[in-house]
């Protein structure tokens, strides 16, 4: 074996070891939550950790779905467990945020990339600058604005502020830059209106970008604990992460229950990520290369 081959094998072994350690560090909390939700409270609270549950129980899950009830929808008398309502709220919030962000960002990104209008560069600079703005900075005006609109403690209070996400506009602009100008001109000559050009030519061409943005928005909205904490208060309006937090406050010792809630919050997002992983990574790399 030559020296080169030897050093490359050592390098490979070293990278594998580092990667395995990192993977373990990331996977372990998830493993602990998922196994923890099936452990009885005594085992969870015992000072000696049980790495693999000896005794499996569904108690935590049944407990999670039997605590506190809320109406299924705002005006409906049918009451369901709070956790289910929170889950519905969260899914609704994430999906609406995803759809609205994708529509607005795709339109804005396309306009910024392909249309010539006065103040275009300034507007784009403003959007890029907004990307650097921490959420906390705009919090007070945002809460006031939402209150003025009468949306405080309403699920739309956590949807609307995420629409028009500057990063989304930026990403869509980068993707739209790749559409050849001639193609849009060909559409104009073919007789397509502005809207038809957008829906029949532009959208299909930036589809991978929209896919990536959809995943980004879904995950971001799902995980945006901070905004949800500020905007939502009543039990029937909570999202799953807020719901778990309130449970934690009420039942600080019932870790099994909290772990069941945490698993419920984490599992859908992991499934979404695994399903759309391709778009997710593509979105990141394309933004990086073209940006």
């Amino acid at each position: 074996m030559s020296k080169d081959n030897g050093s490359s094998v050592t390098y490979k072994i070293f990278s594998f070891v580092v990667l395995i350690i990192l993977a373990f560090l990331f996977i372990f909390p998830l493993y602990w939550i998922i196994t923890g939700m099936f452990k009885p409270p005594a085992v969870i609270n015992s000072p000696t950790p049980q790495w693999w549950p000896h005794e499996w129980t569904m108690r935590n899950i049944t407990e999670l779905f039997s605590r506190r009830t809320a109406p299924l929808f705002s005006e409906i008398a049918l009451r369901v467990p709070g956790a289910l309502r929170w889950l519905i709220n969260t899914v609704f919030m994430a999906i609406m945020a995803m759809i609205l962000t994708c529509i607005t960002a795709a339109m804005a990104g396309y306009a910024l990339a392909k249309k010539r209008f006065i103040g275009r560069t300034f507007l784009f600079s403003l959007i890029v600058a907004a990307m650097a703005l921490p959420k906390q900075v705009i919090l007070v005006p945002l809460v006031r604005e939402i209150s003025a609109l009468g949306l405080y403690d309403n699920i739309w209070a956590v949807i609307l502020p995420t629409v028009g996400w500057p990063f989304g506009v930026f990403l869509m602009k980068q993707f739209s830059e790749g559409i050849p100008g001639e193609m849009l001109e060909a559409a104009r000559i073919d007789g397509a209106s502005e809207l038809k050009t957008f829906t029949s030519v532009v959208i299909p061409m930036i589809k991978p970008g929209i896919g990536a943005l959809a995943i980004f928005t879904f995950i971001n909205s799902w995980n945006d604990y901070f905004l949800q904490l500020i905007m939502l208060t009543s039990n029937s309006n909570l999202t799953i992460s807020l719901g778990i937090a309130t449970m934690q406050a009420e039942n600080s010792t019932d870790f099994g229950l909290i772990m069941a809630g945490a698993a419920l919050a984490a599992v859908p997002i992991i499934i979404v990520f695994l399903l759309f992983q391709k778009y997710f990574t593509k979105g990141i790399t394309m933004g990086a290369v073209k940006g």
Partner: peptide, 18 residues
């Protein structure tokens, strides 16, 4: 353009890829 009854062929074809 659409009302001029003209058609145009572009250098880089400008075909809709999808």
């Amino acid at each position: 353009p659409k009302d001029r009854d003209i058609a145009m062929v572009f250098q880089n074809y400008a075909l809709y890829p999808h």
